[in-house]
Simulated assay, not measured.
Amino acid sequence: MIERADQLVLNYVSQAADAAHGVLRADQRLDFARRLRARIEVERGGSQNARQVAKVLARFGDPAALVEREARRLAEAGVATARDPAGVGAGAVARPVSGPASGPAGGPSGGGATRPLPAVTDEEAPPGVRAYRRIAQDNLGRRQGMGLPFAGLRRAAMSSANPMATGGRDARTIVKEHPRDTAALAILVVAALLVPFDLPAVAIFQVPLVVWAVGAAMVLFSDAWSVRDRFVGAGAPLLGYAVGGVLIGGLRVGIEAGMAAFVTQFFDVSGTMFMIGTGAGVLWLAYRLLDVS
């Protein structure tokens, strides 16, 4: 997870550096990339969550637009660039740009050094950057009042999608990052699928119950979900078995049918309710694992 978040930042800075070829001089490109990386780290706030990092990068917008803004800033200051080696304006005095961009506190480190890359806000960004941000935010499904319900699940299914468009999350990434957690969900699904088969009991326990216990233990000892989510996901099959069996069985036999008829109906429907509860629990855990709420 940490490696993927850092890779998103490196890819973004590399795109900006590539876009700066032919626009900024070599020393200016290095200075710009260094300040851009520092600004991203400030906005990132130490987060190692790939989705949050992708959201931060989306706010910065198109790397090429940032390069153009830097070139305009240097041109307005009369600094020669690769695009305009002679500088802008007659008698313009070029200021050095290869020095450190900022001191430890983020302010200018000394005379002649370029100022730190400013924070990117919607008010100050060029129109092209603002448009790119809106597109990126739409793709991330983060705009208020927009996007389909559970759009994150749809994005996660795009296993070959660009992580910048999927918030750094996709189905393949989830499996790689949480192999034991996805294995636990698979075991719970297997437990539900074994219910219709009349398998011999293990000691006094039915096979689906044994398989469910293994999957439930893996879920309860996982740190990928909150405590509440773990108990909800692991307990949903038992809740469906017990409560669902009692309710549906009672409705099918009525009040005056007798205990024997009720027990018969309970065991007739409890297996189906166990499968339904398992499906609901697995879907909830998968949704929470994707962290798209």
Rank of each mutant, 00 (worst) to 15 (best):
G240N: 10
R155K: 11
Y287T: 09
P126A: 10
A183I: 08
A26V: 11
Y12Q: 08
G99C: 05
V79M: 03
A286W: 07
T81Q: 02
P127F: 09
V129I: 13
R37P: 00
E123Y: 07
Y132I: 01
A165T: 13
L140F: 11
S293D: 02
A186H: 11
W212G: 04
A131L: 09
A105D: 12
A65L: 04
M146W: 06
T114N: 07
G141L: 10
M218Y: 11
V210R: 03
G103T: 06
G245E: 01
G45V: 15
G235F: 13
A125W: 04
V97P: 00
S14E: 11
A257D: 04
L289V: 02
L193F: 08
R155F: 07
P118G: 06
S14Y: 06
A224E: 10
V207L: 15
H178G: 00
L283S: 05
M164Y: 15
R228A: 03
L10K: 15
A286N: 01
D170V: 02
G103H: 04
Y287K: 03
L289T: 03
S226D: 12
S47K: 09
M259A: 09
M158A: 06
V93C: 06
S159V: 14
T182Y: 00
V243H: 06
L148H: 13
V232S: 12
D223C: 00
V53A: 00
L247M: 10
S222T: 11
L117Y: 14
S98D: 08
F197W: 11
S47C: 06
Q7F: 02
A92G: 13
L247S: 09
L30F: 14
V246S: 05
R51C: 11
A157P: 01
V42T: 14
Y132T: 14
P85V: 00
G61H: 05
E3S: 14
D18H: 13
M146R: 11
P200R: 04
A257M: 04
L66I: 04
A156F: 02
G233C: 15
D62H: 09
G45C: 15
D62K: 05
T81W: 01
N11F: 07
A113Y: 14
F231W: 13
R83F: 13
V189I: 12
F262Y: 08
R172D: 14
